[in-house]
Amino acid sequence: MSLNLPKPIADYVEANARLDLEGMMKHFTNDAVFIDNGKRYEGSAEIRKLLRDEAIAVKAIFEPDAVREEDGNVVLEGPAHGEFPGSPLRFTYRFTLANDAIKVLETTV
């Protein structure tokens, strides 16, 4: 399924599909916030560690199959599969963009 996504989000999803940590990181603002199931990570260093330890390490690839706009945010839904318990799991990713970059990313199962 082809989704019409803003470029920073499309590029982030494509980098995730390649398990490309640097490609995923380059789409965040320097002061970005990543909220993963309620736990907050702030700034590039914390987000990089989260993605390295919780996504790349278990080969977690998110494959969105639905997109909508909600309160000015872009919301993606779809399965993530990888080498983690319960794979695949269905996730919701809520992106807030600023200056053509990801300012906030919130993920929930």
Rank of each mutant, 00 (worst) to 15 (best):
E70K: 10
G72P: 03
E77F: 00
N37W: 06
P64C: 11
A60I: 12
E46C: 02
E63K: 14
P64Y: 04
P64N: 07
G72Q: 13
E54S: 13
D36S: 09
E77K: 04
T29V: 03
G43A: 12
E63D: 12
N73C: 12
L76C: 06
R48T: 03
L50K: 05
V74S: 08
G78D: 05
R52M: 06
V75A: 01
A32N: 00
K59A: 13
I35E: 13
Y41E: 02
H27P: 01
F62K: 10
P64S: 08
R40Q: 14
R68H: 03
R68D: 04
F28L: 10
K59G: 07
A60P: 02
D31T: 07
F28D: 09
A32C: 02
E46W: 00
A32V: 00
D65Q: 04
N37K: 14
K59M: 11
L50A: 03
I35A: 12
E77V: 01
V75H: 05
R52V: 08
F62H: 05
E77L: 01
V74I: 13
I47N: 11
G78F: 11
G78I: 06
K39C: 04
G72L: 12
D36F: 10
V58T: 05
A55W: 12
D36G: 05
E69F: 05
P64E: 11
E70Q: 08
F34C: 07
D36V: 10
E70F: 07
L51N: 03
D53F: 01
I61D: 03
V58Y: 05
L51M: 07
I56N: 08
G78L: 09
A45F: 02
E77W: 02
K59V: 03
E54C: 09
A60T: 13
E54Y: 07
V67R: 11
V33S: 14
E70I: 05
G43M: 12
E63S: 14
A45Q: 11
F28E: 12
K39Y: 03
P79E: 13
E77P: 00
I35Q: 08
E54N: 06
F62I: 09
G72V: 12
G72A: 10
E42Q: 15
K39A: 13
H27G: 13
G78N: 06
K39I: 15
P64K: 07
A32Q: 04
M25F: 04
D71L: 09
I35C: 04
A57M: 10
L50W: 03
